[in-house]
């Protein structure tokens, strides 16, 4: 299964959320591979706390591989190469967790040629043989990278794939997330151009809300009643707006609460962070755990 992680805009927490989902999925006993296709700023290494590839790798990054610069991309086994002690031993029952970092100093693709799509197809095909899940961080907005994976997935008809569109819970983000999917040259439009069936493609796209502040959240306890009422009204308005834009509950796979750890330092949230050091909220870990199950749960992906 291929999961493509995209966001309407930068700064949505797409990378930190998708890495955490991948991490949780591996803890659930699946072999997981994370592909950093965010070529302009390949920082997945930092989130996994692998300092040697914190800003991408100098040799054999994905960017270099797609341009034909190396025969196979560099792989990092997170369970052995992470700098965080808590991550460095594979928990019993967990699956493999492998990071394919981007190239250090790489830039966004400025075009997609057939050769690049062919290499992308080869990569996905080979990873699919050995991993239960390949999480592909496709970067923000309309990009040649998104175009490339749309083309590649058309050529792999028997490999299942799904898209996660990450967005924040604000007016602008809701409108932009909808635009990225249904707008001109959006995923559906471009996907159809490359040979995807738009109906089928739509069924394979779900939204994930990030940094969500629930009106009844513990953080809001100190607020005045007026503030709380205003927030509640805003939330209702946003829900209505989201519904109108097809970003509402039915198309939503899950939401991740606002968590200071994710805001201040993008990192994996381990059970230790929740239970021992208590720097992260249990709700956040639970949300990741839930999403990690839902991405492969067919009932969450039935036609809309």
């Amino acid at each position: 299964m291929l999961i493509f992680a995209i966001s309407d805009k930068g700064g949505t927490g797409r990378s930190v959320t998708s890495t955490n989902i991948g991490y949780r999925h591996a803890l659930q006993g699946n072999d997981v591979c994370y592909l950093d296709f965010d070529f302009g700023s390949p920082t997945a290494g930092a989130i996994f706390s692998v300092s040697s590839v914190a800003r991408g790798t100098r040799n054999g990054g994905l960017h270099e591989y797609l341009r034909g610069g190396c025969a196979e991309p560099h792989r990092v086994d997170v369970w052995t190469e992470s700098d965080r002690e808590g991550l460095r031993t594979k928990p019993p029952g967990a699956g493999r967790l492998v990071l394919l970092p981007g190239s250090e100093g790489g830039g966004e693709l400025s075009a997609v040629d057939d050769e690049m799509v062919r290499r992308c197809v080869q990569l996905f095909g080979r990873l699919e043989e050995e991993f239960d899940l390949c999480m592909v961080d496709v970067s923000a907005g309309r990009s040649f990278t998104a175009e490339m994976v749309l083309q590649a997935s058309v050529r792999l008809p028997s490999i299942p794939f799904r898209w996660l569109v990450f967005h924040r819970w604000t007016r602008q983000h809701i409108i932009a997330a909808d635009g990225l999917v249904t707008g001109a040259d959006g995923l559906l439009d471009a996907g159809a151009r490359f040979g995807h069936d738009p109906e089928e493609l739509r069924d394979r796209i779900r939204f994930v809300r990030t940094a969500v502040l629930e009106p009844d959240a513990a953080e809001l306890v100190g607020l005045r009643d007026e503030q709380r009422a205003w927030l509640s009204a805003c939330d209702a308005e946003l829900r209505e707006l989201a519904g109108r834009h097809g970003v509402g509950r039915t198309a939503m796979l899950g939401k991740v609460p606002l968590d200071p750890v994710l805001q201040w330092r993008e990192q994996l949230i381990s059970d230790e962070d929740v239970l021992a050091s208590k720097i992260a909220n249990a709700e956040t870990a639970a949300a990741f755990d839930e999403l990690a199950k839902k991405i492969v749960d067919d009932s969450a992906w039935e036609g809309l």
């Binding site: 070529f39 302009g40 960017h63 341009r67 790489g106 830039g107 966004e108 693709l109 400025s110 075009a111 040629d113 690049m116």
Partner: peptide
């Protein structure tokens, strides 16, 4: 001719 990377 052409480049394959933005700003490359």
């Amino acid at each position: 001719p052409g480049s394959v990377q933005a700003m490359g």
